[in-house]
Design a protein around this nucleic acid. Structure first.
Lengths: 239, 239
DNA sequence: CCTCCAGAATGTACGTTGTACACGAGACTA
DNA sequence: TAGTCTCGTGTACAACGTACATTCTGGAGG
């Protein structure tokens, strides 16, 4: 149906064979990650990455990473490798899913740009797909279906919550709105002022605690949908 | 703590008093919404909005909407008004929350750019806050705490799921990846090929069905945390 | 050693974006 | 009718991604 020819993805472009003093794809990706960690998404420009590598022009990078989207894809997949994914599902599917989701959550805490960028790119990196495969196996072993939907549900929950936290941080940094009083100032001006009383006892929950709470809610809901009398299901092994 | 002076928000800039042949803030916002509906976020440029209004230069708009972020804030709040928010909580907190979340979901379906933009802006529009106030009242009446956390949880779920769907659509449009076979082609190349067997029975669930499923999971989890023996709680009324 | 050439880095340039600034035309007030 | 305020315009700039042509360089063949 799409009339234009499809865009190219970095996964179809292997790194060019290196010579002596050449740049490396890994080096560029590392520099991009470091830059995004410290300067945020808006600081991640091709010129800045080139500058961080001591290279005078951004055009040098294009040989290695295809284009900026390619660099972003590689960065996303690189930090995805920091997520702990067991080799095999364990005894308790809840523990397995909680573990992966929490590890992803902590990774995003170290790389806040991840949540902002992941939704704009197709999630086809190898480590991302490894995580998905693990979660699918866990759900499948537990007989929880539709497994693909649940994986997407959990992944979206983690990144969505991280986005929400990022927005709160940005609100504080960019608009100076952080305290309950600040919020009341805004709320009082424009909205139903019954909001005030709720904002008064805003949750003292940390971001981590809110994350855990929502994750438990989701897992409860998934558990409630487990077909009765169906403890596990085995997959046909493939050659 | 922030050293730079905080950015200005549109909510502090009332519309300038109009004269005869002047533009209107509402007109500009409508044009922006129409443009984003048809062209997507990338098509939403100040020049394009000006062009759609028959105005020769984008600078004309700046008197009315402060800057592009201001326009986006106004657009977000304008379409938020399409969400059905009852005046008062009803009998069943689940129905109330489901209703608002579903209405928000349908609104985002009509304005896909909403999910992409809402996370980048502080949610201080009047209609957005009205929705939050209603959900807080519902949760509070039902004795479900921490209410603010649950509101954020539900809102994030809706927008996060919409983002996920948007990404799938973009994948189809931009990369030509839509069918199960396409996905397998990518998965097979780079990842654990046990993925293939799961992708084979990818969910025939529609986006709407997936949304409902996840929403029910969340509501189940929230219900499971309701303090026993605590049916409802009344708020002190305020002058 | 020198010569040569592919591979690597550079410099220049273009189109697009948001938006600052100064100007001029039109409409309301006196 | 004269003056002032409001509003739309035109020009311009910095920063972005990146296409293209050019220059540099390091290692192989003589």
């Amino acid at each position: 149906m799409p009339s234009t020819s499809p865009e190219r993805l970095i996964w179809h472009h292997p790194e060019p064979p290196g010579r002596k003093h050449a740049l490396t794809r890994a080096e560029i990706v590392r520099a991009g990650i470091a830059l995004a960690d410290t300067e945020g998404v808006s600081g991640l420009t091709m010129r800045a990455v080139a500058g961080a590598l001591g290279v005078s022009t951004p055009m040098s990078l294009y040989r290695y990473v295809l284009n900026k989207d390619g660099l972003v894809d590689l960065m996303l997949d690189e930090v995805s490798d920091e997520v702990d994914v067991p080799a095999e599902p364990g005894d308790d599917w809840r523990d397995d899913l909680r573990g992966v989701a929490s590890s992803l959550w902590r990774m995003i805490g170290r790389h806040r740009w991840y949540a902002e960028l992941v939704d704009s790119r197709p999630p086809f990196g190898p480590t991302t797909m490894r995580r998905a495969a693990f979660m699918l196996a866990v759900l499948d072993n537990a007989g929880l279906t539709p497994a693909v939907t649940y994986v997407s549900l959990l992944d979206n929950y983690v990144t969505g919550t991280a986005m929400s936290v990022s927005r709160e941080i940005a609100m504080l940094e960019r608009f100076g709105i952080g305290t309950t009083q600040d919020l009341q100032a805004y709320a009082g001006e424009m909205a139903n002022d019954s909001l005030d009383s709720w904002l008064q006892d805003m949750p003292p929950l940390t971001a981590d605690a809110r994350f855990e709470l929502g994750l438990d809610c989701l897992l409860d809901g998934i558990a409630a949908r487990r077909p009765v009398g169906r403890r596990s299901r085995s997959r046909p092994s493939r050659g």
